[in-house]
């Protein structure tokens, strides 16, 4: 049933026990994004080292199961990646969520496979992409040093 496609075990696990929840306790890039129509909010802290590698990333905020799980999976996925790799993944996820790409590409990214179910729920796509938009913004900010 479609409901179970949306709320898969992986999603619920991340929702109940989100990974990398909190804030990085050192100087780093911080961005806040919100989705006023649902009231979802995310605060992202990102630490990129001099080799442009993501040393640490944490998130906090409030949101539905889909947005919390997506944020948790996002931090897991990009930690240790370079900023370019992270940007590429974010772009892939966002386009796929919009229904513009082949959903099967998500199979290659571990737990991200669980977000496939969201694509058939257009009203929930924004919940799933909030963290990824926040990531894009944080990467941009880290790069320009603004």
């Amino acid at each position: 049933m479609a409901f179970d496609d949306l709320y898969q075990e992986i999603i619920l696990d991340h929702y109940r026990n989100p990974h990398n929840f909190g804030e990085i306790q050192r100087s780093c890039t911080i961005v806040e994004e919100d989705n006023p129509t649902c009231g979802d909010q995310i605060k992202l802290s990102l630490w990129v080292d001099e080799n442009k590698t993501i040393q640490d990333i944490k998130f906090s905020g409030q949101g539905c199961a889909i947005s919390i799980a997506s944020a948790s999976i996002m931090t897991e996925t990009v930690k240790g990646k370079t900023t370019n790799e992270a940007r590429e993944i974010a772009d892939t996820i966002i386009t796929t969520m919009r229904g513009e790409g082949e959903p099967d590409v998500l199979d290659e990214y571990g737990d991200l496979i669980a977000l496939k179910g969201v694509i058939q729920f257009p009203a929930r796509v924004k919940c799933a992409t909030l963290a990824w938009h926040a990531l894009e913004e944080a990467l941009q900010k880290a790069e320009t040093g603004e």
């Binding site: 049933m1 479609a2 409901f3 649902c38 979802d40 409030q62 539905c64 929930r124």
Partner: peptide
């Protein structure tokens, strides 16, 4: 529980 999750569950 976030209201979106509530509404989605009830919709099922």
């Amino acid at each position: 529980i976030h209201p979106h999750d509530v509404a989605q569950f009830l919709d099922a």
